[in-house]
Design a protein around this nucleic acid. Structure first.
Lengths: 141, 141
DNA sequence: ATTGAAATTGAATATCGCTTTCAATTAGGA
DNA sequence: TCCTAATTGAAAGCGATATTCAATTTCAAT
């Protein structure tokens, strides 16, 4: 971890250590605010801006990527070996992952056909989850 | 057009007419600011907020949809019959569309497997376009 | 261990997209 | 024509993220 930072000219600090650990202990799709709150529960002296910046840093060194579903809140998702997409409920905001491994080769081809060297993929499905559909059915409509 | 609005309880106005026309004359992936600027070149008296609101309206009546690539700017893309994805250059911001028709059935299945009723799909590939790769190669690195 | 340049920090402030408010105006069915 | 609900433009507001800056800290080179 420290080495990874040093390799790119960054330094390790106690703040970063705590933020890194907290981020990787949390689930997926963490927003900056959520992380900031959790980090500051452990150490009140860490500033919001440090958390924001560290989150960007985690992306810069390639350990996470931004996920944007269009609600104005950027979430951060650690990069796993397994390429995956997101299912997202437009009503309650529930997030479900799905394996997108079998799409990759197709997407790779699409990219190279257009002269692009792909860096990342995003496959997202918006819709309505089971629970929300049942609820809206019960309540009259 | 007018009928489409009336059917959903909206009214047609001169402002909306101009904004609609301008939007559909522009290319794809128009941001609110771009549209606003173009509209206001034709009629300086139209307010920004009217443009924003009309853009939302166009989405509400189902003629366009928001596209979000994570740079904090929402773009609006008219809805075509052909489902498509986006290739996006991380360097210069170039946008290229590709046909995603053959992914739909797979995505539909993914959704229903999780109990979701899909409403929309987003397939995006980030990467580096040919031009930017050549340029960064020429300039030393 | 000490040093010193460069990176990092936290607080405050700024910015940037976008939304809302509000009083005045306008569209369009009755 | 009239009436009401929808719409307008300007301005203010909002929330997420970025930036500024002086003080502090890291760590490679001594």
């Amino acid at each position: 971890m420290k080495e990874l930072l040093h390799a790119k000219g960054f330094k390790m600090t106690p703040q970063r250590e705590l933020i890194f650990r907290t981020f990787f202990d949390m689930g997926r799709h963490v927003s900056a605010d959520e992380l900031s709150e959790k980090v500051r529960r452990k150490d009140r002296s860490i500033g919001h801006s440090t958390v924001w910046r560290t989150l960007k840093l985690i992306c810069t060194v390639g350990l996470a990527q931004e996920v944007n579903i269009g609600d104005g809140i950027t979430r951060y998702d650690r990069i796993t070996r397994v390429p995956h997409g997101h299912l997202f409920c437009l009503e309650c905001g529930e997030f479900v992952e799905f394996d997108a491994g079998d799409m990759i080769s197709r997407l790779d081809k699409v990219a190279s056909d257009s002269g692009f060297v792909p860096e990342g993929f995003k496959v997202e499905i918006q819709g309505y989850c089971k629970k929300c559909r049942q609820q809206s059915q019960e309540s009259g409509r």
